[in-house]
Design a protein around this nucleic acid. Structure first.
Length: 283
DNA sequence: ACCTAAACCTGGGCGC
DNA sequence: TGCGCCCAGGTTTAGG
C-alpha cells in the first residue's frame, strides 16, 4: 500500500514532469472520489508538488491545491502525450484490468487529469482513495510529525511513546502522532530495532534504536522507489514497479526465516492489521 | 484518552 | 462451470 516512501517516489517523479504544466481538464469517472469543482482547476498551472504524510499535494497557481490520497490500491500513472496520441506503456498495470491502451483508460481509472503534455491517471481498484480540490491545506494540520524531517527528534519520539499504553505498533501507525508510516514500514522498523510490536509504547526502552530504524527503513523505501509486493497495487508513475519488496525484513514473510536469527516469522492480528515479527529477537 | 466495530469497495480465493 | 461467502486494509465515524 502506498505509504510515505511510495508517495514520496510519486512526488519526485511528478516534480520532474509536470511542474509548470497547464491543466486542460479534469475528467471524473468515479464522482464519489472527487471532492470539489474540477472546473476551478481548469486553465491553472502546476506550481509545485509536495507531500505531507501519505498525501500528495499538487499546488496550483491560483492558490488552490489538489490533495490526493491513494489509500490501499491507488495508483498515479503519468502517460506522456506524443503528438496528440497516447504512448502505450510497456507494462501491464496491476489491478488495472490489463495494459493501458493508447487513448483508453484502464478499467480501474477513476480520475484523469489532462495536462498539455500528458495525462495523470488516478487508478484505484477498491475506490478508497480520493482527490480533493481545496483552497488551503488546513485539513492537514492535525497530522503528526514528518519522520524524515529534522523535527522528528529522539525526544519527540520518546514523548509520543511515553504518552500511550497502546501497542507500540499502533502508535507508529497513528497519523496524528507520526505521519506517513503504514503497515509495511511499521513492521520492518520494529524488526530493525528488535522491538515486539505488541509492547505497550510507554514501556519501550529501545527508543533510540527505533528512532534510527524508522528513518532507515523509510529512506530505504524511497531509495528503492517504494514497495510493489505481489498483491499490491502500488507502481511508480511510469508504471514500473518499485523494488523495496525485495528488502522486506518481516512484512509478508510469514513462516519465512528471520533475517537475523532464522526463526520463522510470525503473523498476528494487531488492531485489525496483519502484523509480522520474529518472536525470538523482537522483545 | 482509550478501545472496538462497522463502513467504505471489489477482485481473488475458497468450498460446494 | 458458477454461485455465495469471506478476506484484505487506511481512515473515518459511531458508540462504549
Amino acid at each position: 500500500m502506498p505509504e510515505l516512501p511510495e508517495v514520496e517516489t510519486i512526488k519526485r517523479f511528478l516534480e520532474k514532469k509536470i511542474v509548470g504544466e497547464k491543466i486542460e481538464k479534469i475528467e471524473i469517472l468515479s464522482p464519489k472520489q472527487f471532492v470539489g469543482n474540477p472546473n476551478e482547476a481548469k486553465g491553472t498551472r502546476v506550481k509545485s508538488i509536495e507531500r505531507r504524510a501519505k498525501i500528495l499535494i499538487i499546488k496550483l497557481d491560483n492558490s488552490s491545491y489538489l490533495l490526493i490520497h491513494l489509500k490501499l490500491t491507488g495508483q498515479i500513472v503519468f502517460l506522456p502525450k506524443n503528438k496528440g496520441k497516447y504512448v502505450a506503456l510497456g507494462h501491464p498495470i496491476p489491478y488495472a484490468g490489463g495494459d493501458i491502451q493508447p487513448g483508453k483508460p484502464a478499467r480501474s481509472t477513476r480520475v484523469i487529469i489532462h495536462l498539455e503534455k500528458g495525462d495523470i491517471f488516478f487508478n484505484d481498484l477498491r475506490k478508497f482513495g480520493w482527490i480533493k480540490l481545496v483552497k488551503n491545506t488546513k485539513e492537514l494540520n492535525g497530522l503528526g510529525v514528518e519522520p524524515l524531517s529534522k523535527e522528528f527528534t529522539l525526544k519527540i519520539l520518546t514523548d509520543v511513546l511515553s504518552r500511550s499504553r497502546r501497542a507500540v505498533k499502533l502508535v507508529l501507525l497513528d497519523q496524528k502522532k507520526i505521519a506517513g508510516i503504514g503497515n509495511i514500514y511499521a513492521n520492518d522498523a520494529l524488526w530493525e530495532a528488535g522491538i515486539d510490536p505488541r509492547k505497550p509504547a510507554n514501556r519501550v526502552k529501545k527508543t533510540k534504536a527505533l528512532h534510527s530504524s524508522i528513518k532507515k527503513v523509510l529512506k530505504e523505501g524511497i531509495k528503492y522507489g517504494g514497495a510493489s509486493a505481489a498483491d499490491e497495487a502500488y507502481i511508480q508513475p511510469d508504471a514500473s514497479k518499485g523494488n523495496y519488496q525485495y528488502h522486506f525484513r518481516v512484512y509478508q514473510r510469514e513462516n519465512k526465516p528471520c533475517p537475523r536469527d532464522k526463526h520463522p516469522i510470525k503473523r498476528i492480528n494487531l488492531g485489525g492489521r496483519g502484523t509480522f515479527f520474529c518472536s525470538q529477537c523482537q522483545t
